[in-house]
Design a protein around this nucleic acid. Structure first.
Lengths: 173, 173
DNA sequence: ACCTGAACACCGTTCAAGT
DNA sequence: ACCTGAACACCGTTCAAGT
């Protein structure tokens, strides 16, 4: 049950103890169901990012911790992963689902952008571009590691990003 | 027709002027069909990378040109994009298809690894990790830009990667 | 307001039957 | 060797009918 086409009215109905036709009362179409799942996902993620901002006073700690969220949904495999929604046959996704997937990206980019400026990694005018680049890189790493079922690959890629300076360069020693 | 579940026996049969049941003579299951498509894709890609190695004597030119391939399949939207296969419900993909998707990643990582060493970007022992990180980052950028149908986002993310030093740092001026 | 069974068009797959 | 029609179980969706 990891992607949009993995969503299944009849299985879901069985889990919930109801007939599949009844689900259409709450979610008229599969698009509505998928959008609701995606929305719930990015809302949870937005809350987690806010919590991180509140927990760490140093924005560099936020940057350090950011990849952990993606790592977690990699660790518990049964968890749906929005990057999945994002990728395959994105064109075929209903517009309502696309909108929620983009909201997920927007939340991440906005949060990263703010943190990058606060940490002095990039000037404000470059922060959104860098934020989007980081989001794409981390999502890509999650994807690749997922396809190998090897979380150590994820860690190695994140390390490479850091070493290359994607999250900001170390102060000269 | 961008992803695995977009593949369709009946449509394909109509395009080819045959009945859908007949396709099972050549591809017994959808897994065989999907694997054949994915294999063809990464073989073409491998040939293109070889051509790039042959065309440019300077490995830094190879690094400069590498993102162009992903940009191209972003430009002509009708083209199938293996990153799509890779992502959504990857777990649900038949093993035969998974194997071809991984071969695509392997080809890219091996090529990048060689080029990175030749260009002196990283020491040999770090080259595979960096290569995989670059591949993931570029694939992720393609994915995000694709979801926005905005190729300028792709260019901006690649620029950010370069500015951050992911492809190697500029010699001190 | 909430649920159901039955039907519909779609899908991948199988198979006996054709040439 | 290659193709076909017909059937199967699955899917999302609709709808008249139940409480």
């Amino acid at each position: 049950m990891h992607g949009y086409s993995g969503l299944n009215f009849r299985d879901l109905a069985r889990d919930v103890g109801i007939k599949s036709a009844s689900i259409h009362y709450y979610f008229p179409s599969k698009a509505d169901l998928g959008a609701a799942v995606a929305r719930r996902y990015w809302e949870d993620n937005a809350a987690a990012l806010d919590a991180m901002s509140a927990e760490f006073e140093d924005p560099r700690q936020c940057l350090q911790a950011y990849p952990d969220r993606f790592r977690q949904s990699l660790a518990n495999e049964n968890r749906l992963c929005l990057s999945s929604f994002m990728a395959a046959e994105y064109d075929d996704l209903p517009d309502a689902v696309k909108a929620e997937v983009q909201a997920f990206a927007d939340v991440n980019v906005a949060w990263l952008s703010k943190v990058l400026v606060a940490a002095g990694v990039v000037p404000a005018e470059d922060s959104e571009a860098r934020a989007r680049a980081i989001f794409a890189a981390v999502a890509g790493a999650q994807l690749i590691a997922r396809s190998r079922s090897d979380i150590s690959l994820y860690d190695a890629m994140i390390d490479s990003y850091r070493a290359a300076g994607l999250f900001g360069r170390l102060p000269p020693s």
